[in-house]
Amino acid sequence: MRLKRQKRVRKSLRIYITCFGFRKPFKVLCDGTFVHHLLVNRIVPADDALANLLGASVKLFTTRCVLAELKRLGQSYSQSLDAANNLMIARCEHEKLKAADACIAEVIGETNPEHFFVATQDGDLRKKFQEIHGVPIIFALRNALFLEPISASLRQHAKTLDEEHSHMSELEQNMLKKRVQRIKEELGDQDLPEQPVKKKLEGKNGMWVKDRVRFKRKKAKGPNPLSCKKKKKPENKNPGPTKKREDGNENATRSRSRERRRSRGHTQSAQAEN
């Protein structure tokens, strides 16, 4: 199950990175409910747990309104307040303090220009951000962290964005026409074709993102040379010519040479005895 969850998270992150411009290190905007849940279930340190979920380094943020809300909740949330004070503060434009959910909704806006991941345990806030494209939501169940799965409407929106990026804009078409006209004037060639160049980077699902990581297939290799027997040297089937006597009797020459060797050995032994 953990492996399947990691695959779903990586697939969702590819869409957020390619279609909505998210970059590493990822920025996570936490509310008070999420910080309190992490402390109660001992999911610490929080940045390491979120980094393991997203597979990259993270920066944790909160807002002044979230800190004020934790302070109003009293002594039971004092540890959560101390932990939230260690996070970086995301700037909220309103002058007066608001409720935590309203403050986070204002920081995110309609397009999420700062590319925040929203970490919350508030069900109403999660439903609200599910309707806004380009806002990934992180939540926790007991001692495990999850990334909200991508909805069908978000997939369709990402597909339309990819189709828009695959075609040239009017500005790019005008620039191309001017460049072609300039080349015609320089070369004096009036027969150059005027065809708009289209970017065509499509994958399996109509998107230019690769659906799967493609690994190189391993080719068959030869045997291990250390485990192979050494090749035997071929026997010489055609030995060199033998010396022959003038009469052509080979056997006579061999027997005579043997007799000579024996006689030499015999004479040497006899001299040694004398």
Rank of each mutant, 00 (worst) to 15 (best):
V58L: 03
E110F: 05
Q195I: 12
S76K: 11
L81W: 08
K210Y: 04
M175V: 06
A105D: 03
N249R: 15
S227C: 11
K98F: 03
K243Q: 15
Q156H: 08
T111A: 09
V9G: 00
G265N: 14
N224G: 10
N251L: 15
H165S: 09
R212E: 06
V197N: 08
F116C: 02
R23P: 03
F61H: 01
E170D: 07
R245V: 00
F215R: 08
R8I: 00
P136K: 03
C19Q: 14
T160H: 13
I132S: 03
N85L: 13
D211W: 05
L39C: 10
G123V: 11
R254P: 13
V197H: 11
S80Y: 06
F22N: 03
E185R: 13
L176M: 11
I104H: 00
F146W: 03
C19E: 14
N41I: 07
T253P: 03
Q79G: 12
T111R: 11
V180K: 10
D48Y: 05
C65W: 01
V40C: 11
L67M: 07
N249G: 00
E235P: 14
E114L: 11
L67T: 01
F20S: 05
P149T: 01
S153L: 04
V9F: 02
H266S: 14
P45T: 05
E194C: 11
S76E: 09
E235G: 13
K243A: 15
N85V: 09
A140K: 02
E164P: 04
L187V: 09
A220H: 12
T242Y: 07
K128N: 04
I108D: 00
C92Q: 08
K96Q: 04
T242A: 15
G222F: 08
S12E: 03
A68T: 06
Q156E: 12
V209K: 07
K159Q: 12
F116P: 01
E69W: 09
L67D: 01
S76W: 04
N41V: 07
H266G: 12
K233L: 13
R5K: 08
P45E: 00
C65V: 02
K230H: 12
H165C: 08
A119Q: 01
S78E: 13
M207I: 07
Q271W: 14
D124W: 05
D31G: 06
G21C: 10
D124Y: 06
I17E: 09
D82R: 15
V118D: 01
H133E: 04
S269C: 12
T253N: 15
N236F: 03
C30L: 15
A68I: 02
L226I: 09
V197P: 05
L81A: 11
I15E: 02
